[in-house]
Design a protein around this nucleic acid. Structure first.
Length: 562
RNA sequence: UGGGGUGUCGUCAAGCGGUAAGACACAGGCCUUUGGAGCCUGCAUUCGGAGGUUCGAAUCCUCCCACCCCAGCCA
């Protein structure tokens, strides 16, 4: 039923199958999810989380959570906490295997010393610009640094003094001695340690030198006995370096293997950390957890469920092709999950007063309504009905368009869960001509209609009793961008922001049971969509609902029916 | 002009020499006290292109084309 249940196959699992068959790593499978704590996790990370933890679960292996914190600039505990929170929320657990690359700084230093002793690394005094110049270009080879052939002893001494803080930032680096003429620029004596007097959020001022990604990552994998180090495509160029370092320093049989897959791109949004930061800092959104953001925090606040996100990640598959996944697929996963689990309630977003002329004054009926028409196990609730109701402005038209199945002069409709009503009259504002209220009569015997009792009913509309309804604020969220691929546009992506990505409705009415709805709880507002009680701004005094996603609507799709 | 990758329906994606899965989207229909949900039907004679091998090719070979990544002391 759920796509999560389907057996998952992809090229990575095929590689793992093969490794197991060949008894590589003794049949062991160990993965890791290694974010750098310098930003919030987004749906693209979720793909990686589901992949790494999913594989571990499937093969009865392990998946570590490792904070890849080798560059103190921009990293912080706030991000670590958000990452921990988000991965847990997604439904994954690393037990006691929460690791930090920064915990390995001493070991990594020792590895570097070993590399120097093997004559495979040297301290280079070239400036940043000089290193760049010596590196050559894509099409021309680089040239060797004049410091390349320093003695092991001198290198050892210099490296120790780098650590001791004797040199200025940027004055020296440690480089791997590989091949300055390699067609792969990554292999042209890559920098593996730099001097940086930036306090680290975990190690403080203990270190003034920090290992580079290429050096730290593969060795961190090895330290943790990772078998399959899964990363995104842009690291494919780095794999020869990964293998080189691991071959130099790690025993055969314990060397992790890097496998690359295509990162997720999602239509109508952006997923690059840099641009996400820009959205937040320039105030285009209210924060990392703005419900329009593709961050885990944003989607959580929007009301997306972890189940839906996991299903999505499984449905998109894993491959090496650049992709732009239709956000409609994500929305479909959200609808699938919510359709099954969200209780139904009635809410009127843009109210229009409706009076039932022949309904007794002061009478209140408690109508028993199913919480889920297809699932009786979800029970029922009582909803008050009285003479004066609110209905949706869109559900009445003085001059109904073709195929309109709602209320109009001369027509009958059914009030959802209740009576059939017939149009009687309408009250108009003399000045504007706007309809202020609609009058109807009801058919007292029509509540529990039999099938034969359809009697020319045009359709079904939802309602709420004016006297009993709870005022609420509803925030209608829509796609953040107007174009399918904002990141692919060559000019400023902010030009393509959707001005209607948020519409705030402050005069809505919801049925009484929602008064005490808990923050984060999700409902289907019948005929409208799925809504979530806002995690931050909602309170019993002033309920606030976020639209998670609208209902699939074949009527609305048929262009404008004005 | 170097190197590394990738090209199968509008979008993802199976396929691993035996005659193009599935999902989303889209279009019809049935059903319905949510224009929801559910159900049914349709939707690539063709796999970036051109040659070749083969009884047989999306799958093997050759050449070509397009797109992505790499010249941070970021990850």
């Amino acid at each position: 039923m759920s796509s999560e249940m389907l057996p998952v196959t992809d090229f990575i699992r095929e590689i793992i199958d093969k490794d197991i068959k060949n008894n590589r790593y003794g049949g062991r499978v160990a993965t890791r999810f290694p974010p750098e704590p310098n930003g919030y996790l987004h749906i693209g990370h979720a793909k990686s989380v589901c992949l790494n933890f999913g594989i571990a679960m499937q093969y009865r292996g392990t998946c570590n959570l490792r904070l890849d914190d080798t560059d103190p600039a921009g990293e912080s505990m706030e991000y670590v906490e958000s990452i921990i929170n988000d991965v847990h929320w997604l439904g994954f657990d690393w037990e006691d295997r929460l690791y930090y690359a920064s915990n390995y700084f001493e070991k990594l230093y020792e590895f570097a010393v070993r590399l120097i002793k093997k004559g495979k690394a040297y301290v280079c005094d070239l400036s940043t610009d000089e290193i760049k110049e010596y590196r050559g270009t894509l099409t021309s080879p680089g040239k060797e640094s004049p410091y390349r052939n320093r003695s092991v002893e001198e290198n050892l001494d210099l490296f120790a003094r780098m650590r001791a803080g004797e040199f200025e930032d940027g004055s020296r680096v440690l480089r791997a001695k590989i091949d300055m003429s390699s067609p792969n620029i990554t292999m042209r004596d890559p920098v593996i340690y730099r001097i940086k007097r930036e306090p680290h959020y975990r190690t403080g001022k203990t270190w003034v030198i920090y290992p580079m990604y290429d050096f730290a990552h593969c060795l961190s994998d090895a330290i943790e006995h990772i078998t399959h180090s899964i990363c995104t495509l842009e690291f494919e160029n780095n794999r020869p370096l990964y293998d080189w370092i691991v071959n130099e320093l790690i025993e055969e049989g314990d060397r992790p293997r890097q496998i690359e897959f295509a990162r997720l791109n999602l239509s109508y949004t952006i997923l690059s950390k840099r641009r996400l930061i820009e959205l937040v800092e320039k105030g285009y959104v209210t924060g990392w957890d703005d419900p329009r953001m593709p961050t885990i925090a944003g989607m959580r606040r929007r009301g997306y469920t972890p189940e839906a996100i996991r299903t999505f990640c499984n449905r998109i598959g894993v491959a090496k092709k650049d992709n732009l996944v239709d956000i409609a697929l994500l929305e479909a996963c959200v609808r699938d999950d919510l359709n099954e689990h969200a209780p139904r309630v009635m809410a009127v977003l843009k109210p229009l007063k409706l009076v039932i002329d022949n309904y007794p004054d002061g009478k209140v009926e408690e109508i028993e309504c199913a919480n889920h028409p297809q699932n009786p196990a979800m029970g029922t609730r009582k909803v008050p009905l009285s003479k004066i109701l609110y209905i949706e402005q869109d559900d009445f038209h003085e001059y109904p368009p073709k195929k309109y199945k709602r209320l109009a002069p001369g027509r009958k409709v059914r009030l959802r869960n209740a009576y059939v009503i017939k149009f009687a009259d309408m009250v108009r504002d003399d000045k504007t001509g706007k309809i202020l209220e609609v009058h109807c009569t009801y058919e007292p015997e029509s509540k529990d209609s039999l099938k034969s009792d359809k009697r020319n009913v045009e359709g079904v509309i939802h309602w709420v009793s004016a006297e009993h309804a709870i005022p609420a604020e509803v925030r209608l969220y829509d796609r953040l961008f107007q174009v399918p691929d904002p990141a692919g546009m060559d000019d400023d992506f902010s030009k393509y922001l959707n001005p209607k990505s948020l519409e705030i409705l402050t005069l809505c009415f919801v049925e009484p049971c929602l008064q005490k709805a808990a923050q984060g709880s999700r409902y289907q507002f019948e005929r409208l969509g799925y809504f979530c009680v806002d995690l931050k701004d909602s309170s019993p005094l002033k309920p606030v609902f976020n639209r998670i996603v609208s209902l699939r609507d074949t009527w609305a799709k048929g262009a404008s029916h004005s």
